[in-house]
């Protein structure tokens, strides 16, 4: 394009899209009639534009969480058009979210155990040993069925705007997360109980040793006493082992 045509450049685009005022468009046509270079440039642009036009719009594959039709959903006064069935599912999942948060608390700060159908929960360091008694420690613990931890995250007021796939992905992740927490919690409980069992076995072993020692001492004492009484009667000293009674009186 010649230097003297620079002034037409901006207007060529406007002319192509029919944005010039009629008088200015006439001047442009007159210029294009005279100027081969500008005419060639214009035709090139026109060809490019025609090709671009063939690239048609496609439907959006994005389905956000309110986009699903929800005929089964009860009508609400503020609800028109597509109903947020996915949103309903998301709301329904909030308790699950609460469970995840509660379980996170369990893993990080709290002690959790299941007794029958009852889940007891003790926060902080206290209550481990106390928790071994049935029913746990009412002062140091809470229970899931009282809804204490479940209520925590439900206070989140706004739900982010997500598509259905992302929603289900996030739900799957959430479920996996909760499962992991439960698994970890169970592992912790198994570890905890195993530790207690080991301690108990040790205690029993110590107790058994102590008892055997005490019993042995008692037997020794009785034996000494019996031997002394027997010797006081003027009998010959007993051979070792006779005190067991197996030899009987000789």
């Amino acid at each position: 394009m010649a230097d003297h045509c620079t002034e037409w450049e901006e207007r060529l685009a406007a002319f192509l899209y029919g944005e010039l005022e009629p008088a200015e468009a006439d001047r442009m046509r007159a210029h294009l009639d005279r100027c081969d270079r500008c005419r060639n440039v214009f035709h090139e642009m026109k060809g490019t534009e025609a090709l671009l036009r063939r690239w048609e719009d496609v439907d959006s594959p994005v389905r956000h969480m309110l986009a699903d039709a929800g005929e089964s959903r009860p009508a609400a006064s503020s609800r028109r058009g597509r109903s947020p069935s996915a949103a309903r599912r998301l709301r329904a999942a909030l308790p699950l979210l609460g469970a995840a948060a509660a379980l996170l608390l369990l893993v990080l700060h709290a002690d959790f155990r299941k007794e029958g159908n009852r889940y007891s929960l003790s926060f902080g360091g206290g209550g481990r040993e106390e928790g071994m008694s049935p029913g746990g420690d009412p002062a140091g613990g809470s229970t899931l069925d009282e809804g204490v931890p479940l209520a925590l995250p439900v206070s989140a007021k706004r739900v982010d705007y997500v598509d259905r796939d992302e929603f289900f992905r996030s739900q799957a992740e959430l479920i996996r997360f909760v499962a992991t927490l439960i698994r970890e919690s169970e592992d912790r409980q198994v570890e905890h109980l195993s530790g207690l069992l080991r301690d108990y076995v040790k205690e029993v072993e110590v107790q058994r040793r102590d008892d055997l020692g005490a019993f042995g001492a008692k037997v020794d004492s009785v034996e000494r006493k019996a031997r002394a009484e027997f010797e006081a009667l003027g009998a010959a000293p007993l051979e070792a082992g006779d005190a067991d009674g197996e030899g009987g009186a000789k």
Partner: peptide
């Protein structure tokens, strides 16, 4: 606060 209106708008 009408989120359904947002749905319609974005739609």
């Amino acid at each position: 606060g009408d989120r359904c209106a947002f749905n319609e708008l974005i739609g």
